[in-house]
Design a protein around this nucleic acid. Structure first.
Lengths: 341, 341
DNA sequence: CTGTTAGCGCTTTCAA
DNA sequence: TTGAAAGCGCTAACAG
């Protein structure tokens, strides 16, 4: 907040003076109240323009007890997935004239707590939060104690407590398995990260449920290190075994792309010798060689739904908890089911 | 901002009462003033805890004439590059106990103006802005008229006006050309987007300067559509000409990866038959086949520098404009210069 | 070291 | 339809 060089402070009083009305009347004009005559309104608006007046929400908030801001707490600001999520959130907020205070928990529960605290000091009207890895239910009970409306996104800390919006991970994985089976694959491996959060668990669940449904064995689960994409752990030995896998569902496209690179470098052609399915539909998935078949989640859709749900919660007290699963689809390309390159 | 069920409003006054001191003294404790005795401080802090008091920055801001918030206006929230930038910004802000209000101009100058207006209503202390495509100098003069400190990132709207922090695009491109020349490449094509913003222009500039320095022809510039990565425009015919190019510097890794896919599908091996260099060092660049040589820019570094510069500007009035170029490096992999797969 | 007083810029009764 | 007066929760001078 800067003071204009030599100019007088231009606040609502100044506008009122300029327009020859009282402060209260000017205030009504700002809030588009119908109680003020067209004539006065025009004078006030003119005054606003000539003075270059800027509405001070901070002051208004103090009085009205809400700020028109919400807090968004993400576990990893740096990820592309989150940026798409933000896009969806922003879309809804713009229409509601609300702005987002964005903070990063960096997947650290302690930092997460500090950040939420700071947001509360800024009197945000609500919270969209992707719980940091390692958070437990006390996160939710802590927030609830303060009465601040909140919505969890992408991960949930409890099976029952609190609102949640996320992609339908299980459904997406199921789609992928069914697709593979339809293309004659029988030994399907799940190349996923460790099930440390609800998202990873749901993907794994979906995988196992789908296998059972198709009466396939489900011993082919390989947790991989998501920070070291060139390490595929136990997969090496599995490939060399007497009944090697013939298809892989990967935790996400990054894993899938790396894995395809590995296959290529070993002389195998993904899509022909081995089916590969990723998840997220990154831009590169469409242009990789071979093009990657992938489970399309809709992060922006999740963002939009989360924002809308939060606005509802702010508008009226929670009745019961909502769980919104945003469904995805399968984008079929060369690495499984599409025409070979 | 929600009212606690049946509980009394707990404000500074309540804390003061509980601790048996005056409001002013309690306020001093909050701001860690050394003017207050250890004994009273302890009592006040105890009161804060028993009451569950939360500092109301909004009210404090009204008084102090600053908010401890800055606005970040990005031209495309959805891009991974921007998420890394945010990461760097956040890193600096956390230490300064400042939070960022994030808004999206979606590369639309008009929307950009509305968003800035909204940020001003929230009394942000400063602005970090990546100008929307199509913005002109009036953007800066508009902001300057209000006296709000600001820093441009990634793109600048004027050669001279205003502070700017961005990657050293020209330097990075120069590195790439030199590297190609060292590896015997002579017909280097620049596969870049249209030079619609300062970033694209600088890359192109760097390319042309480097070619001149190495006394190479510079007629091989192909603007491509960054939204349609499978279309390489005039490149097709160029490849079929009598003296086809033997290397490409791509606008970014996305373009480079797509291009490598195209080469592969035509039976050419990137790194041997044709050198390819990208930019950004996306995670997939390390694991693609072949692994991609790329110009590493440091978006988080840009973010950190921008945030620091802005905090400086807020702390003291601008003396003269700063232009900070965050230098990058070349990550050499298989697609040019590294060992072949 | 602590308390008193007077606002910051706005909204909201309640009268006129 | 408009105006006067009383705060929202905090900080900054100043006096004790």
């Amino acid at each position: 907040m800067s003071t204009r060089g030599n100019q007088k402070k231009v606040n609502l009083q100044a506008v009122a003076d300029e327009a020859g009305v009282s402060r209260a009347t000017a205030s009504l004009v700002l809030r588009e109240s119908p109680l003020v005559s067209a004539e006065t309104r025009k004078r006030v608006i003119a005054a606003i323009h000539t003075l270059g007046y800027i509405y001070n929400r901070g002051a208004a908030n103090l009085r009205r007890q809400k700020t028109g801001t919400i807090g968004v707490v993400l576990s990893n600001i740096g990820s592309p997935f989150f940026s798409k999520l933000l896009l969806g959130i922003d879309e809804v907020l713009v229409d509601a004239s609300i702005v987002a205070l964005l903070v990063n928990s960096a997947d650290n529960p302690e930092r997460q707590m500090r950040q939420i605290w700071r947001l509360r000091e800024h009197s945000v009207d609500g919270l969209i939060i992707c719980p940091a890895a390692g958070s437990d239910e006390t996160l939710l009970s802590g927030i609830e104690k303060t009465g601040l409306p909140y919505v969890q996104v992408l991960r949930h800390v409890s099976q029952t407590a609190g609102d949640y919006v996320g992609p339908d991970y299980a459904g997406g994985t199921d789609l992928a398995v069914t697709h593979l089976v339809r293309h004659g694959r029988k030994r399907i491996v799940f190349l996923g990260g460790y099930p440390v959060n609800s998202a990873a668990c749901e993907r794994l669940d979906g995988f196992q449920r789908a296998l059972r449904r198709h009466r396939l064995e489900s011993d082919l689960i390989i947790p991989t290190d998501l920070d070291n994409l060139s390490d595929f752990g136990a997969l090496e030995s599995m490939m060399a075994s007497s009944s090697p896998p013939d298809a892989a569902i990967c935790y996400n496209d990054m894993v899938a792309l790396s894995f395809m690179g590995k296959l290529l470098s070993e002389g195998a052609l993904p899509g022909r010798d081995f089916a590969v399915i990723g998840a997220d539909n990154l831009p590169q998935a469409a242009t990789s060689f071979p093009a990657l078949t992938t489970i399309v989640t809709d992060p922006a859709g999740v963002g939009r739904n989360a924002a809308r749900l939060l606005l509802d919660r702010i508008a009226e007290p929670r009745v019961s908890n909502m769980r919104i699963l945003v469904s995805g689809q399968l984008m079929v390309r060369e690495s499984c089911g599409g025409p070979l390159p």
